[in-house]
Amino acid sequence: MEKLGVTAPARSVPQLARFLTRHLHWLAAQPPAADFAGETESLVAELRSTIDPDPTSLHTLIRQCVVEDCAGTISASPKNTGTSGSRSIECSAGHSWEMHEWLTLRQLMERQRKGVSA
């Protein structure tokens, strides 16, 4: 704060945010700025992986298909379909559920798990 010739802001989110915004160019030019940015980037990546883990790192859920008389299995590991980048869940016999159908599929799987006919 001495190098900037300003007093320290109050320890509140709005005051600290204003301070950072006003002095961003000066702060970014300081030698430790690159280390701080790297540490922040690592923290953000860790938080994102906690909130939204990489689907390839999860254990894949495998269940019997919910379609009546289908002997296939559902591998609940979403796959990109087509060039649109939309995602779907498929059974080994070829049944497929697009993202907008996943809640319905989940309900059907839950009914099946409890032994309730659909």
Rank of each mutant, 00 (worst) to 15 (best):
M1W: 15
E2A: 13
K3H: 12
L4Y: 03
L4D: 05
G5A: 01
V6R: 11
T7D: 15
T7Q: 15
A8D: 10
P9G: 03
P9F: 01
P9N: 00
A10S: 10
A10P: 06
R11Q: 14
V13G: 01
V13T: 07
Q15P: 09
Q15H: 14
L16C: 08
A17K: 04
R18F: 09
R18E: 14
R22L: 07
H23P: 00
L24M: 07
L24H: 07
H25Y: 10
W26Q: 06
A28C: 15
A28F: 14
A29G: 15
A29Y: 10
Q30S: 09
Q30A: 08
P32D: 08
P32W: 12
A33D: 06
A34F: 08
F36I: 10
E39F: 05
E39K: 13
T40L: 15
E41V: 10
S42I: 03
L43Q: 09
L43C: 13
V44S: 04
V44L: 12
A45L: 01
A45I: 02
A45D: 11
R48L: 11
S49R: 05
S49Q: 07
S49H: 02
T50P: 01
T50M: 07
T50H: 11
T50F: 08
I51W: 15
I51T: 11
D52V: 08
D52L: 09
D52Y: 09
P53G: 00
D54C: 00
T56N: 11
S57I: 08
S57W: 09
H59K: 12
H59M: 07
H59W: 02
H59P: 04
L61Y: 12
L61A: 08
I62K: 15
I62R: 15
R63N: 12
R63F: 11
C65S: 11
V67Y: 06
V67F: 03
E68F: 13
D69C: 07
C70H: 09
C70S: 13
A71V: 03
A71D: 11
I74P: 00
I74H: 01
A76L: 13
A76T: 05
S77L: 07
S77Y: 03
N80I: 15
N80H: 13
T81E: 13
G82F: 06
T83E: 15
T83I: 09
S84Y: 03
G85E: 00
S86R: 10
R87T: 04
S88Q: 12
S88R: 14
I89H: 01
I89W: 05
A93K: 08
G94A: 02
G94W: 00
H95E: 03
S96V: 05
S96Q: 09
S96Y: 03
W97M: 03
E98R: 01
E98K: 04
M99H: 11
H100K: 09
E101K: 14
E101R: 11
L105G: 06
L108V: 02
M109E: 11
M109D: 02
R111I: 04
Q112W: 06
R113C: 11
R113P: 04
K114L: 15
V116F: 11
V116M: 09
S117Q: 10
A118S: 15
